[in-house]
Simulated assay, not measured.
Amino acid sequence: MTWFTVLIAVVGLERLAELVVSKRNAAWSFARGGVESGQRHYLVMVVLHTALLVGALIEVWLRRPAFLPVLGWLMLALVLAAQGLRWWCITTLGRQWNTRVIVVPGLPRVTGGPYRFISHPNYVAVVIEGLALPLVHSAWITALVFTLCNAVLLWVRIRVENRALDSLPVAASGVLPDARVRP
């Protein structure tokens, strides 16, 4: 169980790193006239994602489920794959990536990287991680509750995000203009 606690702590630190990047990118976006949408559901998202980490720990420490090697190692591989997909999304979007829904008028919609294949690849990573992370140590209650709550949240979030993104032009090349890399 100690190693699972370490895993959750590492994922928590990764989430904090995301928030640092997000805050920097939000300031960049707002300085360029960025418009935020969906503020009402953002706190729910923060609470739910925090509850995933805390819930998985509490469930494992209280229920003390057995570590099932086949399930555990497969779920760990999925967690790592989800992290890879998430950071591919972050690097592809560059300064436009954010944990909030902020669009900068005039910047084109990104259609490169994983966005070539699916409109919201980061949410694929979130769904995979939300199911797989607790199941690394058989915390099936947390996996089930998070997955159901997250489905409702993503239904709201994706609708908000699609409305906001509809205001952006699509870049012909799928790559952001040079403005993306300027400080």
Rank of each mutant, 00 (worst) to 15 (best):
F4P: 02
T5S: 05
T5E: 01
V10W: 04
V11R: 01
E14R: 12
R15H: 02
A17V: 14
A17C: 13
A17W: 08
K23L: 12
N25E: 06
A27N: 00
W28K: 07
F30S: 10
A31D: 14
R32S: 11
H41I: 14
Y42K: 09
V47Q: 07
L48Q: 06
L48A: 14
I58A: 15
V60R: 11
L62I: 08
R64D: 02
R64I: 04
F67L: 13
P69S: 00
M75I: 00
A77C: 09
A77G: 15
V79S: 05
G84F: 00
C89R: 06
C89S: 13
R95G: 13
Q96S: 10
V104N: 11
L107N: 04
R109M: 09
G112C: 07
P121M: 08
N122S: 15
V126G: 09
A132K: 00
L133N: 03
L133P: 02
L133E: 01
P134W: 04
A143W: 07
L144F: 06
F146Q: 02
W155C: 12
I158M: 03
N162K: 02
D166C: 11
L168G: 12
P169K: 06
V170Y: 00
A171D: 12
V175L: 12
L176A: 07
V181F: 15
P183M: 10
